[in-house]
């Protein structure tokens, strides 16, 4: 059974390459050379460059990009006082994030001293709401959380992803790396089977990217809306018939850190637009 699946897939990978017309394939993509000698790839390319013009054109125009509707919502929340401390997130956030606002989007997930572990941007926001603002945490995939994370990541748009994986972050990094290469689910596949071994090829009608997360939160046509990195992880896991983990699970934060590191050097594109 598994053999049959793999054969079908392999066939599609060859057949599909015929109608590839993307910046990655025509040589106009921005290709980053990894600086870390332990990087598994010789080139780092944004998911943007694996998409056709119909998708890229929308991301290129902030007005046409429907993710901006969610960013607008986040900007409103950002300046709104909420909770018992009488503060808005704009007043409390930098203290919680431990780095300047325009840097946050390029360095998270990150080891946070107050949390005592590597946490994602969503977790910084909720920690800040609970401890500094005296407000209720947002649900992970709520419009409020997506709006705020998209708004914050956008403040780093254009700067280069630069997550730290040494020192206190190294345990989470190693965990993330292990998960990335671990075969899971009924199809018995790892992240690497698609996003390391086969990026630039088609899997059925989908062009595989390197799975970089520099554009998240991202508006996806499949979702008709904006979603988080963890939502994307969950989708991938469902595709390979594995049981997805809950949003914010420690393993997903570790995987997010590792995946972000694989894209170190790419421009932050949030909020991106994808198929």
């Amino acid at each position: 059974m598994r053999l049959a699946v793999m054969i079908t897939m392999a066939f599609s990978l060859v057949a599909g390459a015929a109608f590839a017309k993307t910046p990655y394939h025509d040589g106009t993509a921005e290709v980053i050379k990894p600086t870390d000698k332990n990087h598994p790839l010789g080139e780092i390319v944004s998911g943007y460059d694996f998409r056709k013009a119909m998708i890229r054109d929308v991301q290129d125009d902030d007005f046409e990009n429907p993710a901006m509707l969610v960013v607008d919502h986040g900007e409103e929340l950002w300046g709104t006082v909420d909770g018992s401390a009488g503060k808005s997130l704009s007043q409390a956030f930098e203290g919680c994030a431990e780095v300047p606002l325009d840097v946050v989007g390029s360095v998270y997930p990150r080891f946070n001293n107050a949390a005592g572990k590597v946490i994602s941007l969503e977790q910084v926001i909720n920690m800040c709401r609970e401890t500094a603002m005296g407000a209720k945490p947002y649900k992970w995939e709520s419009r409020d959380m997506l709006g705020i994370t998209a708004y914050i990541r956008m403040q780093s748009r254009g700067s280069r992803v630069n997550v730290a994986v040494d020192g206190k972050a190294s345990a989470a990094f190693e965990r993330g790396k292990k998960l990335y290469y671990q075969r899971v689910g009924q199809l018995d596949m790892s992240c690497a089977h698609c996003h390391e071994d086969n990026y630039g090829n088609y899997i059925r009608a989908d062009m595989l990217s390197q799975g970089n997360i520099n554009g998240f939160p991202t508006y996806r046509l499949k979702w008709n809306g904006v979603g988080s990195t963890h939502r994307r992880f969950r989708g991938c896991m469902k595709n390979i018939r594995a049981k997805p983990l809950p949003y914010g699970h420690e393993d997903y934060v570790a995987l997010e850190l590792y995946t972000a590191w694989r894209g170190n050097g790419l421009k932050v594109e949030a909020p991106a637009y994808r198929n």
């Binding site: 509707l69 607008d72 919502h73 419009r143």
Partner: peptide, 10 residues
């Protein structure tokens, strides 16, 4: 449901 909000560019 999400709040319905328009954006216009003129």
């Amino acid at each position: 449901m999400a709040k319905i909000k328009p954006r216009v560019k003129v």
